[in-house]
Design a protein around this nucleic acid. Structure first.
Lengths: 336, 336
DNA sequence: TGTTGGGCTGAAAGCGGTGTCAATTCGCCG
DNA sequence: CGGCGAATTGACACCGCTTTCAGCCCAACA
């Protein structure tokens, strides 16, 4: 069975208080005593129980990171950033994907909330169930990549609107786009909505209509985009048309379909994506896209959360991260 | 401040024991009482403290997953599999990358061990520091992708040797390879070693020498492999030469360099990789590689660990996962 | 009507630490 | 040599929940 603090105390012939002091580095322990205790700890291979300590202190030093999914580079970058920051700040990171979020589901399957000091969470759709879960959240949390203005929690958001606008300006201004075809994920998806909205706005400002038949809602997937493009790409090619895919995977699918159909990118059709994932550098031609600072988003959300855990009553913070347009060959800007 | 169980008890006019019974679903509570308690819980938005419960029960239902790094599809797949399985089994997953593992470092920076019931860990190099950390581990753990025969813990390993052998047999037998160039990561890296060893063995059995000057230790990176290949690829091309890169990234780098140098793949040079990551489907030609069941590895390690938490004294298990050779165009087998 | 035996419920003892406060021990001053 | 404050250390009350174990109430039985 486990060796506990009282075992160490007995072994070192001191009281538990003293052992506790040694462990926590309080300086009021006589060097000689300290040494005895440390030896006992070493010999007994004593490992303090985080549970007991957490219970006393009223915090576990554990924070949750809940993501819509764990698949893809996108999320792994968030995790990476969050992990680095959490380590820095001395917190442990409990990671979980949202399991099933049905219509009426109570929201994220956060089994272990009773153990967490706070949570960073990202949801792909803001259903009522999720809204309810959020408002009932028993611990502080920060919302990632989701704009819920005026809400009483911290949030880290990506200024997608601005980025898309810059991208569209580039495509129209520098690359001579005269028609834009939009490829989104699910229509209810928050990112799809944000990117679509910004795209339409930007086009309107440029006097370029976004024709309803040029808007496709797919599923963020390479294959699906490929299939669609394989079918209808002839109707896109030429005439200064540009595909704006809401993520790089779909853009890559379009490029592949184009190559197969003999449609030249960017000459016959421009293609731009979003995310700047690994795939963007591997398409032929390489993909013009928007680099989203994923790792930074993970890190910032952890930072914000831990900050809040220190200052519970500070007013809600809102960190806005700016993505960056990355120009490569697929939009043809290099040619102009 | 937090609402605790005694608040609920007072509110429902029962004792804490009864509240506890209701929460844990013990059936010996009178329906009427149960209802009162449930209402109190609802009204007070009571959320039991996992810390206290864990302390009493002697387990936190939290397991750690420690990976060498969090970057790349590879690791994110492991996390995904582990997350799914952990959720299934009712455990929370604490994820962390190994931070610095210097020569003398005590090993993984596992701050939060005192909170974990067990750990699944994967290390990229088995230094003495790590060995020591392992043998001192205060909780059960399973080792991923690392062969430490006879050790007293569970492990999940990939039978890389077998997979590489099959790959080599394919390349030699079906594709007519007559010379193999090996591209590894760091020489001390466990995967590099395993893949190199298996490669050399397989070649020896086929009577094909692996020339020392055909062995390169790089860093698993696209760029590095590209640069190397850009320099020396002329000396590789022709004569039935095949590059065996120890991961897909490097293989992709070689293919890109070949394309730039006008070396035709697979006609002038065959290329095969390892891992079957996303990139393998995106190279031109698509990459023949070895599919490693990453998600399964994550899931299996969690399963094994949780099993051990039930049966502490069962004898160490060892799950061997078989990778699979995925033949695509880069080895030229389709031509034969 | 006195027992007996369930079915429910409550009191209390921890789980393994932390932190407060009092007690003990000294070094040193008057 | 007694007194004092600083330096150390110990005793003990909790943190919030689980889990015996005992107690209470009441129907059933004799």
């Amino acid at each position: 069975m486990r060796v506990s603090m009282s075992d160490v105390a007995r072994h070192a012939n001191v009281s538990m208080s003293t052992v506790s002091r040694v462990i926590n580095g309080l300086e009021i322990v006589k060097p000689e005593t300290r040494k005895r205790v440390e030896e006992a700890i070493e010999q007994l291979r004593y490992q303090p129980s985080g549970l007991a300590r957490g219970l006393m202190r009223g915090r576990s030093e554990l924070i949750g990171l809940v993501l819509p999914d764990l698949h893809g580079e996108f999320y792994s970058e968030i995790i990476r950033g969050a992990d680095a920051e959490a380590r820095e700040l001395g917190y442990g990171l409990v990671i979980s994907s949202i399991h099933k979020v049905g219509e009426d589901a109570p929201g994220p399957a956060i089994q272990h909330r009773g153990l967490l000091d706070g949570m960073a969470l990202m949801v792909s759709e803001l259903t009522d169930g999720i809204r309810r879960t959020l408002s009932d959240m028993p611990v502080p949390f920060v919302l990632l990549d989701n704009d819920l203005p005026g809400a009483p929690h911290d949030s880290v958001i990506i200024d997608q609107r601005h980025a898309v606008r810059k991208l569209m300006q580039h495509v129209i201004g520098n690359c001579g786009a005269r028609r834009v075809i939009f490829l989104g994920g699910a229509e209810s998806n928050v990112d799809t909505r944000a990117r679509f909205g910004a795209c339409r706005e930007a086009l309107e400002q440029s006097g370029l209509p976004l024709a309803p038949e040029d808007v496709y809602y797919l599923d963020f997937d390479y294959r699906t985009a490929f299939n669609l493009a394989a079918r209808v790409i002839p109707s896109w090619a030429g005439s200064g048309a540009f595909v704006f895919a809401a993520n790089d995977e779909m853009a890559a699918g379009v490029i592949a379909a184009a190559s197969q159909a003999g449609v030249r990118i960017p000459d016959d059709l421009g293609v731009v994506g979003f995310d700047d994932t690994r795939i963007a550098q591997l398409t032929h031609p390489a993909l013009t896209t928007v680099r989203v600072p994923m790792a930074l988003m993970g890190a910032e959300s952890v930072r914000l959360l831990c900050q809040r855990l220190q200052q519970r009553d500070a007013k809600p913070a809102r960190v806005v991260l700016q993505p960056e347009v990355v120009v490569r060959a697929s939009c043809g800007a290099a040619n102009k």
